[in-house]
Design a binder for these strands. Structure first.
Lengths: 342, 342
DNA sequence: ACTCCCAATGTAAACCTTTACAGTCTTCGT
DNA sequence: ACGAAGACTGTAAAGGTTTACATTGGGAGT
């Protein structure tokens, strides 16, 4: 391997017999340079293997063409497809993705902002559901970079949100249960603090009210969206002995927990109880019975989110406040008409 | 929000009454500047909210402190924890992670190399199992950046590999089946092209040979590591009517496919057949029966891989050829002694 | 008191682009 | 044949750092 120094624009210019300005123009505004010159430049570039030094360009242009993604957990199955969508669109438009795994640790969030403040990233995608620690607050000296919230809306902040219409989707899900004949439908995973959980609960309530079914507070159980919280919630209902015929769970992880609890008690699903999830994460189709759920178009959400952010970034387009996608009802085997035991 | 211009090192210098060189030194080599001066500089920095412009610094220093991760599929459950490990270590050492989702598309691979050739990334982590298209080959003009392979070794290239000792782990797994009394053990997921599959097959063979069990070619079925390939492989064995008592699957996804096929044929697991996986991806503990498998220490692998790459990058340390981790046998419910039907 | 050394600081170059502005040359209309 | 317009190209500044080298000043050693 030769220790040939990396070629700069000057080397190219010298070989092509033009000035560096012309080389730059040949690259960036080809119409502005004569055909013959352009040919010579191309040849010199091929000969030297020249590539533009992105750092010099970025310094000069004051933009990095880099987007920072802040996510609480890159391992989350809900996250990965969104990431693919983000990546697809970004890559198509010549942007790179910088990834920040925050684990919901304020220190890490704050630390990642160094990419913004040092100009290494032009924009920010938030999957955390809140503004990163260290932004906006007392330290208002840091200007807010263009940003977009995905999946989880950001409370109390005027940030464009791209995601599924959670309220509407939860309504559709609950109505599906009602259509199967269920009247006593539990909502597992209430969590007033989380915007998404709140919206899904509202959709659940709307569906019940729309069907003239009264809302029984004993049917609404708190949970933090984890599998364990689902298991505990189902268990709690048995202890209290106020049982539903169907469980509408705030997400698939919770639904899985409910199913584990039900299986442990030797119930037969879906004959004894129906379970409905939300998200359609990968294993939902493999579990037995396969989980009926609402599928989020994660790929589209990711792509669109990146699209909105880049529009914001590149100026021009007016600021879209929110983009809501419709979730799709995926009917599998975990929902059935209730046993007529009354 | 004021339109205050972003502070540069010059602003800080002016306020502190020193030259920009001193400010730079106060930041990077604090011992080289007098205490009193350093204090004034700190104060000026606080006052202006100055942050060093990473682009200017990178241009000058000729390094970006950025690592490019090339992965065929960021959505792969096997990948995400490795990513967390990579990220943890990188972040600890002040590096950022640039993420490239290649989908095994040569064009995308080549495209991502622009980050390397334009100096936007200092090093490369390969999860793809092969050199990116466009590197090394005819276009040898591009110098090989420091790189490390993770999870999937790179064939025919002298690239440090960090991952699990696949051969040894497969041997342990197979021996576990043998210890339960199995003699007819299938290997599902042979794929001579894939290094990992090859190593796991070798471990399987070694275990059988070590136990004095002959190798029956009919017990070794091809597969591409997907759930569908597992299903098809099991089905094939039924069609051929040469059945094992246990299935050792090249990975958990394949094992899941095998279980689906077995369930579809109304067999009772693990009474009728034992199934063993490899990887311990998240849903393996939720499926019924819960899957016995080999767990990869993915977090550690990721951290170590980043560590090796950074050592390479920062010079000094001698090049470690490979780092092998031991996989852990996770005993769940999918493996049992074979029914004595002979 | 003189020299020498060292600590602290400053000056200016280098890193590699993009682009405003200025200059040259061709062409075309009259 | 002359002027203007327009196409093409060149010059040089700017973008914000880091750092080699030069400079200054004060203290220690003799």
């Amino acid at each position: 391997m030769l220790h040939k120094k990396i070629a700069t624009i000057e080397d190219v210019a010298a070989i092509a017999g033009v000035s560096i300005a012309t080389v730059s123009r040949a690259l960036n505004e080809p119409t502005k340079v004569a055909d013959s010159t352009r040919r010579r430049v191309s040849e010199a570039i091929a000969q030297t293997g020249y590539t533009t030094n992105a750092m010099a360009r970025n310094l000069r242009m004051r933009r990095s063409n880099m987007i920072l993604i802040l996510a609480p957990d890159v391992g989350d199955p809900n996250f990965s497809n969104i990431l693919v969508g983000l990546e697809t669109e970004a890559s198509k438009r010549g942007y790179g993705l910088l990834i920040g795994n925050t684990q919901n640790d304020p220190l890490r969030e704050a630390d990642y902002l160094r990419f913004i403040s040092s100009n290494q990233a032009d924009g920010l995608i938030l999957l955390t559901g809140h503004l990163p620690y260290g932004i906006g607050g007392a330290d208002a000296s840091m200007r807010l970079p263009p940003m977009v919230a995905v999946g989880e809306p950001v409370a109390n902040a005027d940030i464009p949100y791209i995601g599924v219409d959670n309220r509407e989707a939860a309504r559709v899900a609950t109505e599906h249960l009602i259509a199967q004949g269920h009247r006593r439908i539990a909502f597992i995973g209430r969590s007033p603090g989380r915007v998404v959980n709140g919206l899904r609960e509202r959709g659940y309530r709307a569906a019940l009210e729309g069907a003239g079914i009264g809302i029984d507070p004993a049917m609404i159980i708190d949970g933090d969206s984890t599998t364990e919280s689902g298991r505990a919630a189902a268990e709690l209902m048995f202890v209290r002995d106020r049982l539903p015929t169907a469980f509408f769970c705030v997400n698939d992880a919770t639904a899985l927990g409910v199913m584990i609890a039900l299986n442990a008690r030797r119930y037969d699903l879906p004959a004894d109880f129906s379970v409905m999830g939300f998200d359609d994460i990968s294993f939902s189709s493999f579990v037995t019975p396969a989980l009926t759920t609402m599928k989020q178009p994660r790929l589209n959400i990711g792509e669109r989110a990146m699209d909105v952010l880049l529009a914001l970034l590149e100026g021009g387009e007016p600021h879209e406040r929110e983009v809501l996608f419709r979730a799709e009802l995926i009917v599998r085997n975990s929902v059935k008409a209730p046993r007529t035991r009354f």
